[in-house]
Design a protein around this nucleic acid. Structure first.
Lengths: 211, 211
DNA sequence: TTCATAATTCAACATGTGTATAAATTAGGA
DNA sequence: TCCTAATTTATACACATGTTGAATTATGAA
């Protein structure tokens, strides 16, 4: 390849971001190398550094968490009035829909994959969940122990995404998105408003250290 | 350090395995380097290769999946008669108990962490889940679509472990194990024997490709 | 035209990785 | 005692990684 600027103004920046997202999605932060991303984008690794300074900011820009957060909020608000009895179904539909249809699915998958191996990304995902999803759920709940309920919801959502996108556990991996939403909705609802069986009767257990 | 065999017969093999399990648990397969493991064990990296030939078999021996599998089976059988209505509670108690009390928790955590970034480990975990847990659940179910139900159970279990051990999402991360088992049991039970809301009415969705 | 600036690659560096080979020391049986 | 096998480190190789600095070419404004 000849050196120097190319003729015309090809949108190399976006090309790099797309390639990066693809690699981060399929291999996670650690295994996705700048050289592979550069090859996918038809570009030299140095150009990536020139545009994004280092691998971490490339990761951040490729995933673009604020976009995910905004889309999630919009979808949740568009789901209708915040009736507490329908919240489980709303969350289920919003999340599954978001993951399947939109262009955000790769970003979320990359986030989960990378969080498992990279402590920094793990912190990012944890804070993202806490800040955007859990806080919102917590705020609209009247049942006791809303934070614990919200974390339970998050665990089920994480599990489905893990089984479906990372582990590819059949037949869940190829299940219809709408069906999946309908199936997990009652369980989410149970976590949100159901009886948590003993959580409020601490004489049956050791004292929870966070209370 | 002087070369050559040490005086006495210290159980270095076990020391290495313990150090390896610790590193694999906290950092996953990729980020846990042989050199770090060797340092933890107070030993030269070459000794690890001499004992285990390569990193993969060290990983396999440190995790010792057959032990996990056997312990799981024993716990499940000790949980009493396989009544279909109590299966959810049994699985919940067995899994949570296994993860909290015994020495197997690090192995499972390491497995999940590593599966997210390493495709080989991902395959191992998938096959392990399918072979030992899912097949067992599937076999004792009379409800329709047992494989799908088993996969849903697996997703919730995966999610709890992910939130608790990998992401450390509070307050779930510090929740009492027994409480956790009681809380997720009804949802597991719903997946196992409950109404899956539309799964058997395929006119509402696109045909599932695995049927 | 001229000149600054943006875009792009090349070559290289420093570091970290898994692993192989050879050497050194000790233990245990003949 | 001597020999063989087991244990342990030192050295080094080959490779992959993120990153840097210089070199080269195109664009657009003055």
């Amino acid at each position: 390849m000849p050196r120097g600027r190319r003729r015309g103004s090809p949108p190399t920046r976006q090309t790099i971001l797309a390639a990066a997202l693809g690699r981060f999605t399929n291999e996670g932060y650690d295994r996705a190398s700048l050289r592979d991303i550069a090859t996918d984008a038809g570009v030299d690794p140095s150009l990536i550094i020139h545009y994004f300074s280092n691998k971490e900011t490339l990761f951040a820009e490729a995933l673009h968490l604020p976009r995910i957060s905004e889309a999630l909020h919009r979808t949740l608000e568009a789901a209708g009035p915040g009736s507490e009895e329908e919240l489980g179904a709303h969350i289920a539909q919003a999340l599954v829909g978001l993951l399947e249809v939109s262009t955000l699915a790769p970003a979320v998958t990359a986030l989960i994959r990378s969080a498992a191996s990279n402590e920094d990304v793990s912190r990012i995902l944890r804070e993202f969940l806490t800040r955007t999803i859990l806080r919102r759920i917590t705020a609209s709940l009247t049942a006791p122990d809303p934070a614990f309920r919200a974390a339970l919801v998050a665990s089920q959502v994480l599990g489905v995404m893990m089984a479906r996108f990372v582990l590819r556990l059949e037949p869940l991996a190829s299940a219809d998105p709408g069906l999946l939403a309908r199936v997990i909705a009652p369980n989410l609802q149970h976590y949100l408003t159901g009886d948590l069986g003993g959580y409020n009767h601490p004489e049956r257990q050791s004292a929870p250290p966070w209370s």
